[in-house]
Structure formats: C-alpha cells, structure tokens
Simulated assay, not measured.
Amino acid sequence: MTDPAEGPPAAGTAGARRRAVAPDKRTRQPTEVRRRLILEAVVPLVIEHGASRVGVRDIARAAGVSVGTVTYHFGGVREILSEAVSIEIDAYYRPLGERMLACPTAVEGLTTLIEGVFSAETDRHWRLWFDNWAADASLEPDSRQHRRYEEWSDRVAELIARGRDRGEFRCPDVAETTTRFNALVDGLALRRLRGAPPLSIEQARAHLRRFLTGELGLEPSPA
C-alpha cells in the first residue's frame, strides 16, 4: 500500500509529534506496550481518513513511535488494521454479550441486544469494520476476526435458545433465526453508514424489533 505521507495531516499528529521528541522514552516501552500503542493509533486514523489513505508514517506519528518501530512489529498497514479490528470486535461484542445474557429474562436480553448493536457509540465500530472489509474483500478472512464473530453468533443463539426453552417465545430453528438476525444487523449498519437513504438509530432498532416480533411470535411493542 502506498504511504500517503504527503497527504492531509493525520488526526492527532500535533500531539504525536510532541511525544516523538523523546525517542529514548519510547524505546524503553515493553514490546507489548509498543504494539498496543500502534494498534490503538490506527483506529481513529482509519475512521477519519479511511484505510486506503493511512500509511505507516501516519500510524507512527499518531502512536508516538518511529517508523522503524512500526515495521519491526508489523508487516504493514494491512496487518496492523487486521489485528486492530480483531481487538475492536472483541471490545464491542464481548461486553454486550455479557450484558444481554445477564438479563433476568430472554425478552429483556433481546432489548439489550437491539439497543447495543445500534447506539450513539456503535457507528465507530461499524465504520472500522466495513472499511476493513472493503479493503480486504479479495483476501482470506482473518482467522481471529472469524473466530470472534462465531463466538458472537453463539451468544445470540444462546439468548434465543434460552427464551425458547423457557417458553418466553417460539423459535423452530435457532440457528436460522440467528443467521437472519445478524445479516439484518449488518445490512442496516451498512445503510446507516452510507446514509442513502438516511437511517436513524431508532429506525434501525425498530427494524430489528419488527423482525424479532414476527420471527419469535412476540407481542408487538406499544407504538
């Protein structure tokens, strides 16, 4: 990937340059700390500029490390982005899965699920995920990301199966319902990011509620 070092300044560049004044302090950082700095720096850059416009030098400046440190730890921007997305997926889905499964009833868990996948904070996750997916569409799926999405799908299925087994709702095929639900979430997220036509957070949630109401035989929510 071409390094767009001569392009627009990366987000947070000014602060990163101040940190870069003291390279001796940077080199004292343990390996995992340096890697984490690099991974954390790439996320806001990609969200602001897009993956295709982020280069190694941009990441180094934002992380407050040298270009050599970046290339020592990673094979390139694609590897950095892939690992950063894996971390983001885990940070996004794991707490949500814990919250929805901790609800007293599966119906309450579904509400937590719907509100969790579309909120004021989730656009960041979706933008990063889709940008990475678009840039890597011709490559093999990252095994870490694939595993995390499978784990997430398992949590959704667990919630639906729990409600079915307790008699809270009906579901002839938990796996199929889970697949359709996740596909609908992905499609709504993409439409929301494209903004054509516009889709608000509440509209996205309403689509999910209608789907689950019909799929699981739930009572419609009051208008």
Rank of each mutant, 00 (worst) to 15 (best):
P4R: 09
E6Q: 12
P9A: 12
G15D: 10
R18C: 00
T27A: 12
T27N: 12
E32M: 05
E32H: 10
L37D: 13
A41L: 06
P44Y: 08
L45T: 04
V46T: 08
V46F: 05
I47L: 15
E48A: 15
V54N: 10
R61G: 04
G68D: 12
F74N: 00
L81A: 14
E83N: 01
V85N: 10
S86L: 08
S86I: 03
E88Y: 12
Y93R: 12
R94H: 10
L101D: 10
E108I: 05
L110D: 03
L113Y: 12
E115T: 13
E115H: 14
V117P: 09
F118E: 08
S119M: 06
S119A: 15
T122I: 01
H125K: 02
W129I: 06
W129D: 10
F130E: 03
N132D: 09
W133S: 06
L139T: 04
S143I: 09
Q145E: 13
Q145S: 15
H146E: 14
E150V: 14
E150I: 11
W152G: 06
W152C: 07
D154P: 00
A157T: 02
A157V: 04
L159Q: 08
A161F: 01
A161C: 03
G163S: 09
E168A: 11
F169L: 08
R170Y: 05
C171A: 14
P172M: 04
D173G: 00
V174F: 04
T179A: 11
L184A: 14
D186T: 14
L188G: 06
L188Q: 05
G195P: 05
G195A: 09
P198E: 15
P198M: 04
E202G: 00
E202P: 00
A204P: 02
A204C: 12
H207I: 07
H207R: 06
H207T: 07
R210Q: 11
L218T: 10
E219P: 06
S221E: 13
P222N: 01
A223T: 02
